[in-house]
Amino acid sequence: MANIQATSPKPTGWAHRLQHGDLFFWLLTLFFALVIIGLVVAVGVVTYNGSAEARAEYGTSFLTQSDWNPIETDLYQPSYGAWPAIRGTLLSSLIALLLAAPTGIAIGIFLSELCPLRLRALLGFTVELLAAIPSVIYGLWGVAVFSPWFTNAIANPLATSIGQFIPWLAGPIAVSRGLAVTGVILAIMILPTIAAITRDVLQAVPNHQRDVMLALGSTRWEVIWLSVLPYSRAGIIGGVMLGLGRALGETMAATMLIGNSTRIEESIFYPATTAAALVASELPNSNSTMHESALIYLALVLFGITLILNLAARYLVWQTSRGPAGARA
C-alpha cells in the first residue's frame, strides 16, 4: 500500500492554498486580527497627535508644574501644569492599593487554598460580580451613601484627633469629597482584579509543592506562606499591578468623588483631582486648543502608564503560570 497516489496532479504552493479558499479565509481573519492592533495604534497616534501643541510648549515639565489654570484673565496667562492631577492620581491609587492589595491577596488565598469546594464557585462568582458593576454605580453609591458615612464616621474623627498633629490627615472637612474617600472606593473597585488573578496564579501552583510541606509537618498556613506564595510571587505582583492600572485610569468614580479641585492640599480629606477626572470634566468644554491639547497630553500619559503596567504585569503573570518558579529561583 506504499504507493497510493492522487488521481490528478495537485497544484502546489499558492495555487494549492488558494484552491479551497483556505488562504482567503486565513487572510480575512488575519485582517481582523490586525484591526485590533490598529485600534491600539489608533489610541496611541490620536492621543500623540492631539497633544502635539502641549508637548511642544511644555515638554516633560508638564508633569511637574503645579499650576493648572485654564482661565485667561487680565492678570494671569492660562497655564497648564499637570502635577495636581498626577499627584491626585498617584495618591488615590496608592490609598486604593494599600487597602486592596492585602485584602485582595487574602481573598485569592482563601478562594484558592482554604475555601470549601462547595463555596468556591459561588464566592468566586460573587467577587467577579464586583468587577462587573459599572463604575458609574460605584460613583453613585459613593456619592450618595458611602462618602457621607465615611466623612462622619472615619474622616472627621481622624481629622479632629490625630489630624491635629499630622498635616496630611488634617481637617476641617468642609465637603465630603476628597482623596481619601476616592481611594477607598477605588480599592473596592480593584479588589476583584487582584483577588481573581491571585486565585488563578495560586491554582496554577502544582500540588506537590503543598504535599511536600504538609509531609514535613507544617500547618496549612505555613504551606501557603512558605511554599505556595513564594512560588507564585511574581504572578501576584502582576495582579497587583493590573489592579493599580485599573485604579490609575478609573474615571467616573473618581470624577464623582474626588471633588475636582486643581489646588494642591496637603490633607487627604480635601478635594483634589486625578488625571482621568480632569480630562473627563474639562475636555467637553475646553477653552482653547491649548487647553484641549494639554488634556489630551494627560490622556496620552495615562495611556502610556497603563500600557507599561499591562506589559509588565502580563509578563509576570505569564511567567508564573508557565514555568516552575523553583527552577528559576
Binding site: 489610541v43 485610569g249 467616573m252 488634556l295 490622556a299 495615562l302 497603563t306
Partner: peptide
C-alpha cells in the same frame, strides 16, 4: 485595560 477616558478622548 486602557482607561476608559482615554478611549473617550480618542
Amino acid at each position: 485595560g486602557a482607561p476608559s477616558i482615554v478611549i473617550g478622548v480618542v
